[in-house]
Design a protein around this nucleic acid. Structure first.
Lengths: 157, 157
DNA sequence: GCTTTGATTGACGTTGACGTAAAGGTGATC
DNA sequence: GATCACCTTTACGTCAACGTCAATCAAAGC
């Protein structure tokens, strides 16, 4: 029925995925070992398809927000067996909720930390401006920081 | 001059601090070993004062937002020797900035994760409502979750 | 055919943040 | 004065998340 317009089924080598997401082959094999990935094989070599790529994205995002690999595995398993046992689903729902609460408080912490660090920056700048203005970062330094922020995220979709 | 109205100088035993912040004595001694804390001694026993308590708060908050203990140590040191070398200050300023950028993207990640998890929750609830509504959490469960969120943070000042 | 390049599977090493067990000191209480 | 509860230091153990190294295999180019 529905033609998959924007997801042509692609295959990736381990190198391709590693370069795209800036991880090592070791990491991908490790995730496979832990049951987070299960790429196809072409002979003995691993072949990753769209599904594996999507899962890898979830893995890395999960890591960035503080999930352990074990947590991530549970979540991925849930995505798989969305028809699975209802009890299991209820259990997962609870875990989801708990994690959401945690994430909210984590976000508050981050907001607090950002505020504190910015205050610290302001103080430092003020001091440096008085004492050693030559040591203050220049405009192009800020540029590079901004660029870093823009290109730092691989495929945030 | 200024009377310390809201910060009566208090002393805490290691146990008191541990219970208040839900950490183990081992952790506190570990932080001390790493130069993050330096409580007074009463004989051979450790005595923590307001300053130590405040530093511990910073340590734990720092951990929650992804700082390593080494990072936290740098920050704490900076808070101490705010008169320190200008070059050192410029260096710290740079690190602060980098960390702020990181924290911003971490916050974006968290927002994304929260959205994804809430979507997942909605889906799960819908399914469960169809299949096993008896397994859905009840109102008092939500209450306990909310309470947990309110009392979970020790003294977020 | 030989070498290079990249993939594979073990297996052991590493780092951070503690846990845990051993061996002992101190003050209160029974 | 013996037990108990709690403190101390020292030292080794652990766990997650990989890094690193070795030995091997397989296709590609010369």
């Amino acid at each position: 029925m529905a033609i998959e317009l924007r997801r042509p089924e692609r295959a990736f080598s381990i190198r391709q995925l590693c370069m795209e997401f800036k991880v090592t082959p070791r990491a991908l094999r490790f995730y496979e070992d832990k049951g987070l990935l299960s790429p196809a094989r072409e002979g003995v070599n691993r072949v990753y398809h769209n599904r594996d790529r999507a899962r890898l994205q979830l893995i890395l995002r999960g890591k960035r927000v503080g999930f352990s690999l074990a947590d991530i595995r549970e979540i991925l398993e849930l995505y798989d067996e969305k028809d699975g046992g209802a009890t299991q689903m209820a259990c997962s729902l609870k875990k989801y909720r708990e994690r959401i609460v945690e994430l909210h408080s984590q976000r508050d912490d981050i907001d607090g930390a950002i505020a504190a660090l910015e205050e610290g920056c302001a103080w430092l700048e003020k001091q440096l401006l008085d004492v050693r203005p030559d040591l203050l970062p220049q405009a192009d330094d800020y540029d590079s920081v901004l660029r870093g922020r823009l290109v730092g995220v691989p495929g945030h979709g």
